[in-house]
Design a protein around this nucleic acid. Structure first.
Lengths: 232, 232
DNA sequence: GTACAATTAAAACGAACGTTTGAATCAGTT
DNA sequence: AACTGATTCAAACGTTCGTTTTAATTGTAC
């Protein structure tokens, strides 16, 4: 039979993935060596190349196993929203909650590595490594299409270009909120309350405020009344 | 005399700095080797260690030369705002514009490497490398103190914790807007209008919308009227 | 033009990297 | 008990890394 995956120790693969995930967050991809990963995982150095083929393939699998589930949840939530709404248009806030809420819920999970992974993911959006960027873009393509489409329908009067930009801004705010909280020491010691559970409402309020902000008038109009309102 | 800096070719230093800046954005710190830097700069391999001491010291100097000027501008603009206002409180929007506007202006400068540097800076906020984080935190400490203080006085009714969080969110949105626009291929091909000059009003509108959003009520209050307004 | 200090140049250093190899070990089948 | 294929293991592979060393070269003051 062709079941080449697991024989007697299927845990070796996941031990490697867990160790890699943690170390990637801590040191980045380049600065994390195979020897660091395998020694932390308690497996032989050659195990990574045996099970995954290469370091790049390992990086890819670290993202794939978590991202597949996250994006599945996102799409399921959007499906449910659209089913409930019937033919009525969706509220932008619900769409945003479906996309960013699921991510924040994963980021709040400190038990099963969700928090670790979301820190890694947030940082990776700006990763210079070309192959990682390429892979992320492919994983996200479908989900982005669906959610952007939903937002376009939800805000028919707002130029799509603007919706795109604001989605971009929202992703940035969320990524930094997660990746930067303990990573960057800029605000170190300043946060009395870094509870991930409270991050959710805080961030969501900020995101929706930004999404609903009046559209900028590019100094095109001579400032008659400072732009119109963007959304509900 | 004790002028050990420059003798007959002071350009070697800056050639190295420029090459390093560009390559760091393109490949990251770890993946950029000394040999890549020196060959792109057209100088000898040993020149970096001679002029800067080490690769880490070079990284530090790449940031220092630009960041010193940026933060000087930021503080000067805040000084001017406070001088104009006299004893009257500053509008939050003006404070935000002073901090993020200067950064965006630098990011819009594609002639003298400002755009390149801002992409690098944005990415570096989440850099795992400990010494880079440490250095950034030190460079920013004074500026953050001043601007956060100004915001606290400008929004006396908003809990400082919330202002801190929103400043954090705003930095994230800006960093991604700059670092992610051409770096990440997530939205590749989707932007018809990626003009850096138009990014400014777009982002500023988003940031102020987020800053002014109603405060989240952490399900603590039983949702009497859905939180109060945050700012002017 | 000779002495001097700053800079550049070419070559080599040991260390660490990702990967490969070939033998040992294991579980299950016959 | 012998065989088989999957997995683990220790060791080594060639390459690249940041840095150091030592010599050649440069511009300037005496």
């Amino acid at each position: 039979m062709n079941a080449p995956a697991a024989r007697h120790t299927p845990e070796t693969r996941s031990r490697i993935l867990d160790a890699a995930e943690t170390l990637f967050v801590e040191h980045g991809f380049e600065a994390t060596s195979m020897r660091m990963i395998t020694s932390q995982a308690g497996v032989n150095l050659a195990a990574v190349n045996y099970h995954f083929g290469s370091k790049d393939a390992l990086i890819q699998e670290v993202f794939r196993r978590r991202l597949a589930e996250l994006n599945r949840q996102r799409l399921a939530m959007l499906d449910q929203l659209e089913a409930e709404a019937g033919s009525a248009p969706l509220k932008p806030s619900r769409i945003v909650e479906a996309f960013f809420g699921t991510a924040l819920a994963l980021a709040a999970d400190t038990e099963h590595g969700g928090h670790t992974f979301m820190r890694l993911l947030g940082r990776t959006y700006t990763e210079p490594n070309a192959f990682v960027r390429q892979f992320l873009a492919e994983e996200y393509a479908g989900v982005l299409e669906r959610f952007l489409g939903a937002l376009y329908r939800s805000l028919p009067d707002v130029p799509r270009e603007e919706i795109l930009w604001r989605f971009h801004f929202m992703m940035g705010a969320m990524s930094y909120a997660i990746a930067g909280t303990d990573a960057l020491q800029l605000f170190a010691g300043k946060f009395d309350d870094a509870d991930p559970a409270r991050l959710m409402p805080r961030l969501m309020s900020f995101l929706l405020g930004g999404l609903r902000a009046p559209l900028a008038d590019f100094a095109a109009k001579p400032a008659t009344r400072r732009g119109g309102r963007a959304a509900a």
